[in-house]
């Protein structure tokens, strides 16, 4: 366990080395990666509930935990599926599990900075707002850097190829959303049709 935590921090500080070990030396674990997702959900809830009213746009609204879970899991699932479908076609060496793990490990900065910051913000006023926004920005930048490095390393891509696949991944995500909506629409139409036929028949006989 201690080793796993130390490895997670190794990834945070040495992403290229860490993700290489994760992909090719079977270091790290899927559970530690999934902890990243869970911590992000917890972090989002804590940010909305704890952060000082001065920096919190959601201070007067109720937090819906189901919504928070969706807001993390749906985009993550879209990204993983989208990236996997693009990279399998483009000689990516990462498996689906590696993508899920890389994303999970990359999410650590989104919780390890904002959670303490939410409590620290209670001591802040607008005069210190630059520290608040600055730290939030740093966590975001750190996340994107880790994700970029992670996906690049597990697939063994060059920077240009990585950028190209990122663009393609975004397209794939849009297509997934479109197909998903189409599917649900068709299914619901079908159910409406089926119930209508049933109703007609039951009225007649």
């Amino acid at each position: 366990m201690k080793k796993q935590i130390r490895f997670a921090f190794h990834i945070l500080t040495h992403p290229f080395d860490g993700f290489w070990d994760m992909r090719f030396d079977q270091k790290g674990s899927i559970w530690m990666a999934l902890l990243g997702y869970v911590m992000l959900i917890v972090s989002n809830v804590i940010q909305k509930e704890v952060t000082n009213y001065l920096f919190n746009d959601h201070a007067m609204t109720l937090t819906d935990i189901g919504m928070e879970i969706q807001m993390v899991l749906i985009p993550s699932a879209l990204f993983c599926i989208g990236n996997w479908s693009v990279t399998t076609l483009l000689d990516g060496e990462g498996r689906f599990k590696d993508i899920v793990m890389a994303l999970g490990y990359s999410m650590y900065p989104l919780s390890i900075i904002p959670i303490p910051l939410a409590f620290l913000s209670l001591a802040f006023t607008y005069s210190e707002s630059v520290y608040y926004t600055g730290l939030i920005a740093i966590s975001g930048i750190w996340f994107f850097f880790l994700l970029f490095a992670g996906i690049m390393t597990i697939h063994q891509y060059s920077v240009t190829k990585m950028i190209a696949t990122t663009v393609l991944t975004i397209f794939a995500m849009i297509i997934l959303v479109f197909i998903g909506l189409l599917f649900f629409e068709l299914i619901s139409q079908f159910f409406v049709f089926a119930t209508a036929v049933y109703q007609e028949l039951s009225f007649r006989y």
Binding site: N52, Y53, L54, A59, M60, A123, T125, Y126, S127
Partner: peptide, 25 residues
Amino acid sequence: FKLGNYRGDKVTFMTGYNKAYTEIR
């Protein structure tokens, strides 16, 4: 100020919730 949803202006810091909070701090 919280009920009135007024956090205070971000330039002078002279009024609103921010000012009251600063004083309490």
